[in-house]
Write a protein that binds this DNA or RNA. Structure first.
Lengths: 122, 122
DNA sequence: TCAATATCTCAACAATTATTGAAATATTCA
DNA sequence: TGAATATTTCAATAATTGTTGAGATATTGA
């Protein structure tokens, strides 16, 4: 998803608050299936439901999450294309003929896909 | 550069302001050599020098830029390892056995290194 | 329909962050 | 040394953003 400056600003603002950053990381780890708002609230510890609701809709407004209703619950999940787009926006035009400058970023991102292969704490 | 939550929050907060995001993108495109504060200010249009100075030190404080003095000028440049670290922090643990979820992000980032090969608007 | 569950909206207040302009610091060159 | 250049610091004010708690909306099953 190609992003413009306004969208990137909204996304970065949304990610610059502790509870919201934790929610995004929780849902990134949860994968495409997502989690109900109530469960997300429990994982966040002592935040009121109205506060969690506010943060969830802020994140959805910023395009970083999407939601669907399932019975009484609203299920939120990470918007993976938007996250990719944000990464691409930030690093766009980073090389100008010197790929070694941004290749470490590519390597860092690639390594996230290998989590399960790495032993926890040998 | 492996990042903790506090560092990531500071970085996202720094990136969530229009002038600062533009400064980072200007310096990402400028590469490791960077640019003097005064030139950055000119590129940002009508912002006062104190405002630019404030934003530059905010970004340096957040670890996204570094500075060095050269004569009367202070040269700012992008902290590429921190940018990579931020990308890695955001997407850490994203797959859980399903690499197809975050591979688009890897592809988006890889493509930034090919800017010069792509014709502008065919 | 009614009670229970899950989540959201709203308004008042608190906290954080941005902007401005004047003055201070550091460097260079005559 | 003193004037000119480049940049930073500071304090006051303006603007934005976060929090709280009460009440509203939507859904389910008895």
């Amino acid at each position: 998803m190609r992003m413009n400056e306004k969208q990137a600003l909204d996304a970065f603002a949304a990610l610059s608050q502790e509870t919201r950053l934790r929610i995004v990381k929780l849902l990134v780890a949860a994968g495409p299936e997502g989690m109900p708002a109530g469960v997300i609230g429990e994982e966040m510890g002592g935040a009121s439901s109205s506060r969690i609701s506010f943060h969830l809709s802020h994140l959805e407004q910023a395009g970083l999450l999407q939601s669907r209703r399932e019975g009484r619950s609203i299920i939120y999940s990470a918007a993976f294309p938007a996250l990719s787009g944000l990464v691409e926006f930030l690093m766009r035009d980073c090389c100008h003929g010197h790929p070694e400058v941004c290749n470490p970023a590519v390597a860092a991102l690639s390594s996230c896909c290998e989590t399960e292969k790495v032993p926890a704490h040998v």
